[in-house]
Computed example of a mutant assay.
Amino acid sequence: MRIVIPIHSFEPGGVERTGLNLAAEWQRAGEDVVVVLGRDAGATRPTAPQLNYVTRPEPIATHWWETPWMIWCLFLWLRSNRADVLFCAGNTYGIVCVMMKLLLGRRCPPVIAKMSNDLERREMPALGRRFYHLWLRIQGRHFDLVVGMAEPMRDEIAEFMAVPQNRITVIHDPSLTGPQFARLSRMERPARRSDGMHVVSIGRLWSQKNYGVLLQAFAQVRRPADRLTIVGEGPERPRLERLVAELGIADAVDLPGHVHDTAPLLEQGDIFALSSDYEGVPAVIIEALAAAMPIVTTDCSRSMASLVGHGKHGLLVRVGDVAQFADKLDAAREFVVCAPSTRAVAEQFVLDRAASTYLAAMHELSDRDDASAHKVRPDLPARKSSRA
């Protein structure tokens, strides 16, 4: 079975990392996996799995219009090559896959789409939220199978995308490889340090992550020996650096940029913090659960309450509420988690389990599909990049 996956680039991101890890597992299982790549560049390129990546020369730099470029690249490839299943790795790629349905019609392979973000989007203005929900319903009409990353997403998909239950499945998001889970689950949580707490957060420096809330909350409850490390890179860096200076906490905050191996930080940290406006099932929360870290997080997705065990594994905060975030951050100094319980939650999100479940769903989709309507010119070879 040939599985085709559109990926913008090797820039760090949970959707892309998980998509490529799944692709590598499917390839190891004997499937023919093709990654249509927008740009053969990015910080994670040296560590990306060895897959069949296909690219086109960029006429100009495409970083700022990567979605139209991806639509064009994927359309040209699918128009001339056979594909059995098109995998939409996350919400970011929803428009790309909908456009393939519109442009290719019955020649488009069946689409299995993973919903990687919150669908309700309570932080949006009412009018914007209405249009967003309309867009979700449009996607729901075009995707052959919609995947939720945790059980609470099943009803969310049905409600906001108007997808019938027979086209919804739940596959726990494969946030961790087996070796990653084993490494994190071996970590011994240190006793609360008397010399202060180390708060760790990991994610792109994007507006979605709302790190301003975390910085302001940390500034309110900071004690002399406390530290905050925010790992990630992105366009919000200049604004965040200005805010750090304005709050007078520059001596206690570290913004190291992209870090390939974050496990040592999770081991050294005392509390994991997430201040996002919206998420799906964040891989960083699964990593923190595997490492048995106390968590302070905004209630930024329908799945978050269950992930933190409704208060047993972490503390929930209203989205955007600086004062409440500060209170919970301070309370987390004394918060103790049950490591076996948090790791049992994290173990549901290990790669090999999800990869085989996805493959079963893809084979069922492909078997149901009328081959003559979807497999185009199988004699034409894929055009490989230098990383193929």
Rank of each mutant, 00 (worst) to 15 (best):
R2P: 01
P6F: 09
S9H: 11
E11F: 13
G14A: 14
L20G: 02
E25W: 06
E25P: 01
Q27A: 14
Q27M: 12
L37S: 03
D40V: 11
A43P: 05
Q50L: 15
L51I: 05
N52P: 04
I60V: 14
A61D: 15
H63A: 15
W65E: 00
I71L: 07
S80R: 00
N81K: 00
C88E: 13
Y93L: 06
V96E: 00
R107D: 00
L119K: 02
R122L: 09
E123Q: 12
M124G: 00
D155F: 07
E156P: 05
E159Y: 08
F160Y: 15
P174V: 02
P174R: 04
S175C: 15
L176N: 01
G178E: 15
G178A: 13
Q180M: 14
R183E: 15
L184D: 04
R186D: 13
V200W: 07
V213P: 05
V213N: 03
A217V: 02
A219S: 11
D226E: 10
I230E: 11
E233F: 08
P238R: 05
E241A: 11
L243T: 01
V253N: 10
L255K: 02
P256R: 05
V259Q: 05
G269H: 07
G269Q: 10
L274V: 03
L274I: 05
Y278E: 07
G280I: 08
A283M: 12
I286S: 03
A288D: 04
A291I: 11
M293K: 15
I295R: 05
T297R: 13
T297H: 08
D299M: 08
S301C: 05
R302D: 14
V308Q: 08
G309I: 04
R318M: 06
A323E: 15
Q324I: 12
A326G: 09
L329D: 06
V336W: 10
C338E: 14
A339E: 04
T342D: 02
V345G: 05
V345W: 06
M362R: 03
L365G: 05
D370C: 09
R377N: 02
L380V: 13
R383I: 04
S385K: 03
